[in-house]
Nucleic acid binder design. Structure first.
Lengths: 134, 134
DNA sequence: TCTACACCCTGTAGCAACTACAGGGTCAAG
DNA sequence: CTTGACCCTGTAGTTGCTACAGGGTGTAGA
């Protein structure tokens, strides 16, 4: 299988596949006579794994750890569980941050009276506490 | 005011202040004899504006637009409102994405039976649909 | 007066995770 | 025999900073 087919099968861009190889996430495949990359089932499996993990929001570093862990079948699953939990905590934090942000932004937008910029409440919110009209 | 004081007054790093100047977000200030940047009140106000907008999650490009708009006091506030609304939509999308992610991750983590990696449900979820045990 | 130290300067490289070229080579179909 | 789709390498761009390296300046204490 050439790189285009592999990329297509995993909804990945060709450049991204090469990038994963460059950073050592995907092992370098064999080459054809024309120096084209020739992938097998193991590559497809590994790239699928990477993509699913990425879809779940894991960083490439976390993916790297998960891949390493998944190679040692006899080991306890707890390390895997730990990585996933850390990631979940991170996601929860991001959601909380964004929700707070949304609240503020909602308030700011709600204050818009659609006048001129001079009276714009949004700009006013952003502007530093000015000496108020005096 | 030298750069350190300005940075301190706006909870910004010195390098970031210089970075904002480099990308044209903060106008280059006057220089002292020793070639130190000398800031005035207008710089403080502008940097405060930038920081607050950043705290609300606006991109630097959006901040740039907001700054331009805020300079034209006679203009309608609608452009400002528009930028804010686009940003809010973006935030809502991110929250939705992260919430979906959290749901999936919750489910995956919940399936962990704390056995070995060979039976790890988390790894199994990530691994491609394998021919199941046959 | 010397010197230690905090502060300032410029310029460049690094982070994540790709994406987008530029400038080539290969291969199958019409 | 040429068109077009695919492949190759290598480098630079994206966002929003951050972290040096390698210097200069200014002030306070010994």
């Amino acid at each position: 299988m050439k790189i285009g087919k592999l990329a297509n099968a995993t909804a990945t861009r060709v450049e991204t596949v090469r990038y994963y190889e460059k950073i050592g996430l995907l092992p370098p495949p064999a080459r054809t006579g024309a120096n084209y990359r020739a992938y097998g089932h193991d590559h497809l499996a590994r790239l699928s794994f990477i993509r699913r993990a990425r879809d779940l929001g894991f960083t490439l570093e976390a993916v790297r750890e998960l891949l390493t862990l998944s190679d040692d079948k006899a080991q306890s699953c707890d390390a895997v569980d730990g990585i996933a939990r850390v990631h979940l905590t991170e996601i929860n934090r991001k959601i909380a941050d964004l929700s707070a942000l949304r609240g503020e932004l909602d308030r700011v937008i709600g204050s818009c009276r659609h006048g001129t910029v001079a009276d714009c409440k949004i700009i006013e919110t952003l502007a530093p506490r000015a000496l108020p009209a005096a």
